[in-house]
Write a protein that binds this DNA or RNA. Structure first.
Lengths: 330, 330
DNA sequence: TGCTAGCACTCTCCGGTCGAGAGTGCTAAA
DNA sequence: TTTAGCACTCTCGACCGGAGAGTGCTAGCA
């Protein structure tokens, strides 16, 4: 119980917590001296640590871990909040790209931390529909829709002039003959074609491949929450965080761990796979439809973060996004 | 010349510049006392100011303004840098959305500040192509391509079940009958239709309207440059900046000024239309094809910023994006 | 008349000092 | 097993004083 109180107090205030403040804030039936003894024992066990001889104690990574595992209680987002979020999503019939951004914004808000949401990466995207649009005589747009409802567009240079009247029938025959094809199957078909069809098939194949690999954009949101924390208020901390989010470091480090299993995963401080994350807490989850289309979402904050709130938010948002994906997939 | 030196020195170091340091850094043939007299005169004229009795002088907004107007010299991006940027753009044949992001990243890099790039907002988008894709029996995707090469997708609920075999012919007839139509013209057509066609037409009209209004996403990049400046190193400054970029405040404040004319515009400190921008310098430009499709791009930084570099970067990037738009429009 | 050297003055910045406050461990008593 | 008391430690903010930098002013010089 004392560990729980220390964690909650420290998360709330950000200042090391001492025996006296603890006994004042919580209605414990005991005196500060007792608390001191208990705290010393918790320190012995490795759950708390002492930054300076005086000045209160703070939880260790292990302390947070114990808190998350045993002391946190149920962590469901309050249903009122669930409803608010659901409402936001239902209100707008958007394109997928905007859903990602909405999800990032909502998650950041709910968790009170920086959120990261990747677009869903189809495991093996199959073609549902193809469209070719002429922009200039030798320049066109290849638009393809996959079975999981994702729309992708790429520009293509034609080897010969082609207006809309040429492209439309081609698109039509391609659409019907390639339905359900994967990137490799399209490539195979391309090697047997020539001219305009060859160019279109090549573009389609590379576009499909591009969707599978790491090219999926990752949106983040809610930097303001974390920058207001004392841990990141100096320029150096902020810079580090920005670099982390900007570069793909974060996702690259996280992905191998995520493939280990579904559900919400929590990494606290030194548990993180990458050195840059050592001073952070990370709560992530995959979302998607049983292995067919998979995305990642999560939140990042200081190790001193409200894990219960973050975990419930991430869990709920992952469920929501999975439902949306299932709906899109039809 | 002394104003120019003071501006350059202060922009470079961020510390108020005194007569002695100036005479040491630049090879002037005069003593510090002379500089002092000159500086006093410049202060009299309102170009410099005195934060404290001692501790050097800094340019006023008016001082920066004079610098931009008369002292800056030609401001072309060095052609080596131009080539690098051009290369980056040519290297990738992407979708428009990604161009926006690339432009934001490149601009931030070149200008050394936070960059903002809006997607092009078509003034009166006209339809070039329409596609309908079935996702579920009563749920579909409306994909439309406008004459300026922008692709837009929205989800639509059908009033009745509709599979791909029903939708494809409908899309085909709609595409040929609506080519070149604006939102209003589509709306007019919708009122005479019913059932599936009516639903599709309504969606198309709202989507077209959505493209015209402020819905265009604005990407920003390069926060790290500005956060490393002493002006924003504290949490409060960073927060303020984030709020500015996150909310639409920035664009809303800027848009009326932008419509006044083409070309690069510079707002220094108090010249800015919004209070939140009073401590910032803003360099913006529109881009696009002669009034038909218009976007905004620019950079934001502390008033103490390298205006020459920012201006040349913004100017070059606006030209580049305009060229790209022209190409897309065909 | 314009430039320069010198000088007294002011203000910031930085390091050291000091006391208040908070927290700890330990010991002895209930 | 819990509590009260006590001596000790460490941080934090306020205060102070000297070094450094910059200024305005005045007098001298070409």
């Amino acid at each position: 119980m004392i560990l729980q109180l220390v964690v909650r107090e420290y998360v709330a205030t950000g200042r090391p917590v001492g025996s006296k403040t603890l006994v004042e804030n919580a209605r414990l039936g005991v005196s500060s001296a007792t608390i001191r003894n208990e705290m010393a024992a918790l320190e012995e066990l490795g759950f708390l640590e002492h930054l300076h001889t005086s000045g209160g104690r703070i939880p260790t990574d292990q302390g947070y871990r114990y808190f998350v595992a045993h002391l946190m209680g149920d962590c469901e987002l309050p249903s009122s909040e669930q409803l608010t979020i659901l409402h936001q999503f239902r209100q707008v019939e958007l394109q997928l790209e905007q859903w990602i951004e909405l999800a990032a914004a909502t998650l950041a808000q709910a968790a009170g931390n920086v959120s990261l949401v990747s677009a869903p990466i189809p495991q093996s995207p199959r073609l549902r529909h193809i469209e070719l649009v002429s922009l200039q005589p030798r320049l066109g747009l290849v638009i393809l829709v996959t079975t999981d409802g994702a729309v992708h567009q790429v520009m293509a240079h034609w080897p010969e002039d082609a207006d809309q009247e040429t492209l439309s029938p081609l698109a039509h025959t391609l659409a019907s003959s390639l339905r359900g094809f994967t990137a490799d199957e399209v490539s195979a078909r391309a090697s047997g074609a020539s001219g305009l069809a060859r160019a279109a098939l090549d573009q389609i194949a590379t576009a499909l491949r591009g969707m599978m690999t790491s090219g999926a954009p990752v949106r983040h949101s809610g930097l303001e929450h974390v920058l207001s924390q004392p841990e990141f208020s100096d320029a150096a901390g902020a810079q580090e965080l920005l670099a982390l989010l900007g570069g793909g470091t974060f996702l690259r480090a996280m992905l191998p761990r995520l493939e280990e299993g579904p559900g919400v995963q929590v990494f606290i401080g030194h548990e993180n796979p990458a050195d840059e994350l050592r001073r952070l807490g990370v709560v992530v989850s995959t979302y998607g439809v049983d292995g067919e289309v998979v995305g990642v979402l999560g939140v990042v904050g200081p190790t001193r973060m409200a894990y219960d709130r973050s975990i419930s938010s991430v869990r709920y948002m992952a469920r929501l996004m999975s439902d949306l994906m299932a709906e899109l997939r039809g």
